[in-house]
Write a protein that binds this DNA or RNA. Sequence first.
DNA 1: ACATATTGTTAGGATAGACTAACATTACTA
DNA 2: TAGTAATGTTAGTCTATCCTAACAATATGT
Lengths: 138, 138
Amino acid sequence: MSEKLTSSLEDYLEAICVFIKKNSTVRAIDIARILNVSRASTTEALKKLSEKGLINYGRYDAISLTKNGEELAELIIEKHNSLYEFFAKVLGSSHDEAQENACKIEHIISPDAMRRIVAFTNYYSKKYGDEFVKKIDL
Amino acid sequence: MSEKLTSSLEDYLEAICVFIKKNSTVRAIDIARILNVSRASTTEALKKLSEKGLINYGRYDAISLTKNGEELAELIIEKHNSLYEFFAKVLGSSHDEAQENACKIEHIISPDAMRRIVAFTNYYSKKYGDEFVKKIDL
DNA sequence: ACATATTGTTAGGATAGACTAACATTACTA
DNA sequence: TAGTAATGTTAGTCTATCCTAACAATATGT
């Protein structure tokens, strides 16, 4: 049931979840635009996510997340956000830079390293707040 | 001339460089073992690296790096080592964990984020040395 | 409700990466 | 040096991802 997703499918799932939270619905074309892929590629990805039981979806049908899909999406988003915080707050990357790196790394970092980054970020933002980065001259 | 390599080809190139530094020569099978791929896959990768002018290589021939190949390999290895340091020293990951994460992230992290990680690691290892990790209870 | 625009799907093709199995070459060793 | 083992190559296949172009369904505006 819960075989690991590819990076690509994780991106689709994540995009679906984020979009639904903001707009309550998603269409294939919304996802296509967000991920900068064709509508055809999106259809294909939706089929796969559906087969894996992560979204409810049928031909010309509305898209929604299943329980499993939502749980998994939340995990991915959580990783994304933690990485974003780390890059933005701790390393002082720009918004876009932090987003880009978080987007890529969220799919490949190990759970242990992720935990360490979260702990690290928490420790430092508590201790130094936003001023931290300025201390080390990047 | 210098189109960007895929993550996979970067891995091959890196492995070749590291192996040559230790043993002065490499064979396809050495690479295959290091990267855990078949000899056939290695042959294919060698052809591509050769086409891109990064290695000297012909059928049943010895493998060596070109000037360009060596330069590029060094850059990748440098990124790898810096990421390893960050995970091992700053976050306190185990050797294997640090290696694994460095291996994956080296191919996708942005140059800017890489610079920040290097600066960060230097700052902290100077300031706290190996004792740093213990302070934040990971 | 009908024409048009938008969105979704399918078919077909490309690229990258990996694999196995069969075969070619090279290296070792008795 | 002959035979075997090790290594390298090729051919053919697979999966994942993306694309375009053509077509199907739905939504919209008058």
